[in-house]
């Protein structure tokens, strides 16, 4: 797989680190109590086939976090942008 970093250009997979699904929304309530929304955000995933936005870190490059839209069934990269 190759990802086109907006800063660095087209680079090999080995430069990047995947961390998580970017389709989820982090609760904005400040976290005073462990609500079900927090537990869902931390632990639950849709994990379905097809296109999905996800967070990748250009760990061996410019250290930018990227939102990569990728088809998890084919590994095709559909778009790459900064958060």
């Amino acid at each position: 797989m190759r990802i086109t970093c907006p800063h660095c250009g087209n680079r090999g997979l080995e430069e990047f680190t995947y961390t998580q699904d970017a389709e989820r929304t982090r609760p904005t309530d400040g976290g005073a109590t462990p609500t079900p929304e927090w537990a869902d955000y931390i632990y639950l995933r849709d994990n379905l086939k097809g296109p999905r936005k996800e967070y990748w870190y250009h760990s061996a490059g410019c250290h930018a976090w990227l939102i990569v839209e990728r088809d998890v069934s084919t590994h095709e990269i559909l778009s790459v942008r900064l958060p």
């Binding site: 639950l44 995933r45 994990n47 379905l48």
Partner: peptide
Amino acid sequence: SLLAAKAGLRLPIES
């Protein structure tokens, strides 16, 4: 996750 989704469930799992 794909099968659980058919029952309306989300799981603490990623493939």
